[in-house]
Design a protein around this nucleic acid. Structure first.
Lengths: 163, 163
DNA sequence: ATTCTGAGTCTGTATTTTGAACTCAGGTGA
DNA sequence: TCACCTGAGTTCAAAATACAGACTCAGAAT
């Protein structure tokens, strides 16, 4: 008899995750952002890396730009024509943490082992991973993380996670 | 003059993120998983919380079950008919870290402030956040995280992040 | 003047999503 | 026993998206 609840403590419309999904909840956006993280920032390069249809890429770049994750820059290399690059904004750059988290999850549960790319600290060169930490910086086991309503002063009116 | 690269260091087909996107890269899957984290595990309940069309919900539950993120359990409460619950598997439960990371990102960059739900350590009751940590447990600034190919022994043939 | 390339646009077809109606089984109340 | 209700889907037509491929257009290079 699992802890089944029949209603979430919060309408989905107010949910931060739902807003995030509007920005990046489709088959291509996260992959486009990953390209940008790797420094692949031009239309043709992205298209060939991903094999994404042109019309979809055009649309996604426009959407990601409109939402403030990418910024379209035009630049000119010596003796070449003007070209464009879609660079990560601060908002887009901050997505690296969720991106790394998802990648590690996929390596653990889909690939079944470490993938060919790892994330390291540029300073020390040592690999980094994603963890839950409390205010003091102590690492918390994800199984102990539970959601709680911020508003009400009550102790635990809602929000016990399934884990 | 940004560090533009014209090819990613790894074909997208080999990319862990691409596999993850196959599982959860659409408008509904993450929201369904969030429901499950909150303990909302039944077809009708999820449907009403999310406002998702029935045919899509049926399809997504089947897909998430087939991919091993959810498990369809049938159970019977006293004097009621047999019903079904879609419970998180270990694989699904481990998605809470990316989910929390995305939620925090959305609060920071879309909502513009803390949302109504926070994640706390069930033991201490203190809020937790997502961070990059190195092997020693020290917290690393995301701006210092860079991708690197695992295979080749070379120092830094590829993979400088845009940040 | 012709060719090439990057960055799109356009078009016609295939897939998905949506919303609404319909099904079906188990249980309840009369 | 019969009519009714509810949960968990299935079915269907219409609308929205995705896709592949051809086409456009401007600036350089030959």
């Amino acid at each position: 008899m699992p802890p089944i609840r029949n209603r979430a403590p919060l309408p989905v419309t107010d949910c931060a995750l739902a807003k995030a999904v509007e920005d990046i909840g489709d088959r291509w956006s996260l992959l486009i952002l990953r390209e940008a993280v790797f420094g692949v920032m031009r239309y043709e390069d992205i298209r060939q890396d991903l094999g994404i249809p042109r019309s979809v890429l055009t649309d996604r770049l426009a959407r990601l730009t409109a939402r403030g994750l990418l910024e379209k820059q035009s630049y000119r290399e010596a003796g070449a024509r003007r070209r464009f690059a879609y660079a990560l904004t601060a908002k887009g750059r901050d997505l690296v943490v969720p991106l790394i988290a998802l990648t590690h999850w996929s390596e653990a549960h889909i690939l079944g082992g470490p993938g060919p790319v790892e994330i390291v600290d540029a300073q020390s060169g040592r690999p980094v991973r994603v963890a839950l930490v409390d205010e003091g910086g102590a690492i918390i086991d994800p199984a102990r993380a539970v959601p709680r309503l911020r508003q009400a002063g009550a102790g635990d009116p809602e929000g016990r996670a399934g884990s």
